[in-house]
Design a protein around this nucleic acid. Structure first.
Length: 467
RNA sequence: GGUCCCAUCGUCUAGCGGUCUAGGAUACCGGCCUCUCACGCCGGAGACACGGGUUCGAUUCCCGUUGGGACUACCA
């Protein structure tokens, strides 16, 4: 049994988007599951569209996701000699030929064919001319005109194509670079790729590629065409569907493992299980459980999964991902950060939420939300806060249980319900009316900060009642 | 237009001939819990596109219709 070798071959004409990431994930997961290898290859034969910025962006996105590769990145642009070698082989054996039809006349013919309601395929003008190379010539593959080609797809089953539907595709452009279908085949052959998992938008290309494998006399890899990810209007994903780049989700406060979980679950299932860690996915992933119908990208479900991952990760795991967002709120302190995170996990759907929610822990001075202050920091509560202050000063410890006892005492003495006391204290401590539990907050902040914030609140009440 | 793929709640899906008065998740709506907000828990509404077959029996198999999608480049 040969080792599984999969690959991910993005073309560097933009960022890594959600759909591409999912394809990468499937290939990566399969390789990791099987103990095989995962190869990264940059398909940059289209010089006009490829940029090194895109390459960087794609690598950055893969790294963030934690998708690592065993070989590469290979660049097709650096493999021209290899393609030429294979092309020469095909020309020598008569399986490919030079063609001097100009793009203009081809375009012309395509239009008239279409207008007549016919299939716009190459008419074979140069097929039997026996032309040799000349400037501007391209190389075409001599495609069989009869018979059928069967794609044995591990996801879709056998798909039969009539060879007469296929035409003599160009395999080398007039500038000497190979075209996609040919480069892919040569690369996959020379890189020993034995498992090709890709979007089903490639299913129609596959018979051509199979014919190329045959002409080159190499065995076929296993093909698996996964259904596409669709936008909210059920069409192919594109920019107009909103944020589609992987790094955009990073920047919106998503965890890589959450995006992975969501993306893999979109099109693959494991019974009723929804939540997976990356290790679990590696363990459980298999081609058999990939569905056959296209799925719609649903940001709401992604958000829910993200919240779940935030909830079930340890503060230590969350910390490095949270740091950049804290920085945006000018929080650099490391003090009691993990404890603070713990109090925010069940109330944060994104890391941005969490950073926002954590801000009050680290402020020197609390600024009160206007509404909160006018509703809860009123003169009649001043005495209660003062009473609390005294009790806290003398509290033996500052853990949640002790704190709760202090409040119970205070409730008995004042006859007030917890809610009546907790909200003003919450405003004093956080500036607002929404926060983690009051005892949690206090024990995280510690006695000194709590006391000084209560003092500040009392002074605030005094100064605002003067006017 | 041609070729190919696809079709279970709004969405993601389980289901691989009887277990389905179709299960889970998400979103939505109630309720409980409760110091706020969440989390959690309980409950509700919500789907097998349609028509033919095959079969004792179809969500499950076959064909057609309809609908959606992809491809149809000297893009990948």
């Amino acid at each position: 049994m040969k080792k599984t070798r999969t690959r991910f071959p993005p073309s560097p004409s933009g960022y890594l988007h959600i759909g591409g990431a999912r394809t990468a994930l499937f290939n990566w997961l399969l390789a990791r599951h099987d103990g095989g290898e995962f190869i990264l290859r940059i398909e940059d034969t289209d010089v006009a569209r490829s940029t090194s910025e895109s390459v960087d962006a794609i690598l950055e996105a893969l790294e963030w996701l934690g998708i690592d590769w065993d070989e590469g990145p290979y660049f097709q642009s650096q493999r021209i000699e290899i393609y030429n070698e294979y092309i020469q082989k095909l020309i020598d054996t008569g399986k490919a030929y030079y063609c001097t039809c100009t793009p203009e006349t081809l375009e012309e013919k395509r239009k008239t064919a279409l207008a007549r309601g016919e299939k716009p395929k190459y008419d074979g003008t140069c097929r039997d001319k026996g032309l040799s190379w000349s400037p501007g010539a391209v190389v075409r593959f001599r495609s069989p005109q009869t018979g059928t080609t069967v794609v044995e797809d591990v996801i879709k089953g056998n798909v039969v194509f009539e060879n007469r539907e296929l035409d003599d595709l160009i395999i080398q452009r007039s500038d000497g670079t190979p075209t996609y279908n040919f480069a892919v085949v040569v690369d996959d052959i020379s890189m020993n790729i034995n498992t090709v998992i890709r979007g089903d938008d490639h299913l129609n290309n596959t018979p051509r590629q199979i014919l190329l494998y045959n002409a080159l006399e190499y065995p076929l890899p296993v093909f698996g065409h996964v259904p596409m990810v669709l936008g909210s209007d059920r069409s192919r994903l594109s920019k107009r569907h909103g944020a589609m780049s992987v790094t955009a989700y990073r920047d919106m406060g998503y965890l890589p493992q959450a995006l992975i979980n969501y993306l893999v679950r979109l099109g693959w299932s494991y019974g009723n299980q929804e939540f997976f860690t990356v290790d679990e996915l590696i363990e459980k992933f298999s081609l058999e459980n990939i569905g056959r119908s296209a799925g719609m990208f649903n940001p709401e479900k992604l958000l829910a999964i993200n919240a779940e991952h935030i909830r079930f990760s340890s503060p230590e795991e969350l910390l490095p991902h949270l740091k950049p967002f804290l920085k945006e709120f000018n929080i650099e302190s490391d003090e009691y950060l993990c404890q603070a995170i713990r109090t925010l996990q069940t109330r944060s759907k994104t890391l941005i939420d969490m950073a926002k929610g954590a801000a009050f822990y680290f402020r020197e001075r609390i600024e009160y939300e206007e509404k909160a202050a006018s509703k809860f920091l009123r003169p009649q509560i001043k005495g209660v806060l003062q009473g609390l202050l005294q009790k806290l000063k003398s509290a033996s410890t500052f853990d949640e249980t002790t704190l709760e006892n202090v409040f119970v005492e205070l409730m008995e003495e004042t006859g007030l319900k917890l809610g009546k006391i907790a909200q003003p204290v919450r405003v004093a401590l956080t500036g607002g009316t929404v926060s983690p539990g009051i005892f949690e907050i206090m024990s995280v902040l510690g006695r000194d900060r709590v006391l000084s914030r209560l003092h500040a609140a009392i002074r605030f009440i005094e100064s605002s009642s003067e006017n």
